[in-house]
């Protein structure tokens, strides 16, 4: 549907890729660890290695007591709803991660504080 209006109603998206000066947005969420309240967002160049996303940003989840118990080769990674296996040494672009993609990971057996999902 379109916006009912008295005049032509066309506007560019406020968060389109070109507004980030060579970077793109990536969102990250650790499933069933809701003490972090919501996914976080960072802006990185498409050439950024996935390892940097992991070491500089995803690692902030280490505050959670479940973090040291993660068995990393059992972690299920998803880009949106699609399961994928990230290549840590490849770039975001090479891992198929585009602007405003949501990277989520699940850690089987770890369901947050006292199994609450938090």
């Amino acid at each position: 549907m379109t916006v009912a209006a008295l005049a032509p109603y066309e506007f560019a998206s406020r968060d389109r890729l070109e507004n980030f000066h060579g970077k793109q947005l990536v969102y990250v969420w650790w499933e069933k660890h809701r003490m972090f309240s919501r996914p976080f967002v960072v802006a990185l160049t498409p050439a950024t290695p996935f390892r940097r996303l992991f070491e500089d940003y995803i690692s902030t989840y280490a505050w959670h007591p479940d973090w040291p118990h993660i068995v990393w080769d059992q972690v299920i990674w998803q880009n949106g709803d699609e399961v994928f296996t990230p290549d840590f040494d490849a770039s975001l672009a090479q891992n198929g991660i585009g602007h405003k993609d949501l990277i989520r990971f699940s850690t089987p057996g770890l369901d947050g504080i006292a199994g609450t999902g938090y």
């Binding site: 969102y27 919501r38 976080f40 967002v41 949501l102």
Partner: peptide, 27 residues
């Protein structure tokens, strides 16, 4: 102290923090 920046809903602009109506453990 969660120092990261939030992901927001494009419409209501709330941070995306509400549970799946079918599963309170899932966002």
């Amino acid at each position: 102290n969660n120092k990261t920046a939030p992901m927001n809903c494009q419409v209501c602009i709330s941070t995306i923090k509400f549970n799946d109506p079918d599963d309170p453990m899932k966002t």
